[in-house]
Design a protein around this nucleic acid. Structure first.
Length: 242
DNA sequence: TAGGCCATCTGGTCCT
DNA sequence: AGGACCAGATGGCCTA
């Protein structure tokens, strides 16, 4: 894209690259020093490495020379007008600010999502990816609960026998709570159990819900394992990592 | 100390 | 033209 803005951004990148005037370099550093995690203040000269690394990445292994020529051209355009540099710097600062706010909003949304997910006993904060995967499968588990409850209700209304062992048509009440797996108190080890006054079954062979093709599970994902009960009065959904 | 996670900066691209 | 979105790079912090 050849928009003016892109061109400006490219030049602002060059502020911290190689043989720049002191004004240009100080401009780049002042931008970065706004945050405590500033790479400029953290490691002198790291910005050059960053920019070069980015260009190497974008250009591929064989385009280093071409990228360097591109840099030279950009640097040549960047010289001359001090007011242009100030405008570029201001726009970059504004863009950084917007990006920071955007990421903060994203993190706020993730916190909200963590708030509606079942809490872990040890108050371990889920990472971003864990939160998303956990929410994904929590929704799936709740959907299964509703589906199964509806199925059982219809079976009961029709006077049919309860489903056989291993069938996914288990009654899993939506009133789920989180309990700790003593063997693994880490974040992966939270199991959800439905609270019910009905007696628990003594089934010992767990039924893995992931066998259901409708399960949204994928690689490196959280899943749910029904750890006991045939008819689910004490069905445990145990999050597991695959 | 290596690896994971995170925040931030940055340039490119798309959209309004 | 400028904002939103995205992905790569980087450095800091924490933990096993």
């Amino acid at each position: 894209m050849d928009s003016v803005y892109s061109d400006i951004d490219s030049n602002s990148c060059d502020f911290s690259y190689g043989a720049q005037s002191d004004d240009e370099n100080s401009g780049s550093c002042s931008m970065r020093s706004e945050s405590p995690a500033s790479s400029c203040t953290g490691k002198p000269g790291s910005t050059s490495d960053s920019d070069l690394g980015g260009l190497l990445h974008l250009g591929g292994q064989g385009d280093v020379e071409q990228q360097q020529q591109k840099k030279k051209r950009r640097r040549g355009r960047a010289r001359g007008d001090g007011t242009v540099i100030v405008v570029r710097k201001n726009r970059r600062v504004k863009a950084n600010d917007r990006e920071r706010n955007r990421m903060h909003n994203l993190n706020d949304a993730l916190d909200t999502l963590r708030g509606v997910l079942p809490a872990f006993p040890d108050e371990t904060k889920l990472t971003k990816i864990e939160t998303l995967r956990f929410a994904h499968n929590y929704i799936w588990a709740l959907s299964e609960t509703i589906r199964i409850a509806d199925l059982q209700a219809s079976n009961k209304a029709a006077g049919r026998a309860p489903p056989v062992n291993g069938d996914m048509s288990l009654l899993m009440l939506p009133n789920l709570s989180c309990i700790t797996d003593e063997k693994n108190p880490a974040s992966e080890a939270c199991s959800w159990t439905s609270s019910s006054s009905s007696p628990a079954s003594s089934s010992s062979s767990p039924v893995y819900c992931t066998s259901n093709p409708s399960s949204p599970l994928g690689a490196q994902d959280y899943g749910f394992m029904q750890s006991d009960s045939i008819y689910g009065y004490h069905s445990h959904f145990v999050p597991v990592v695959y």
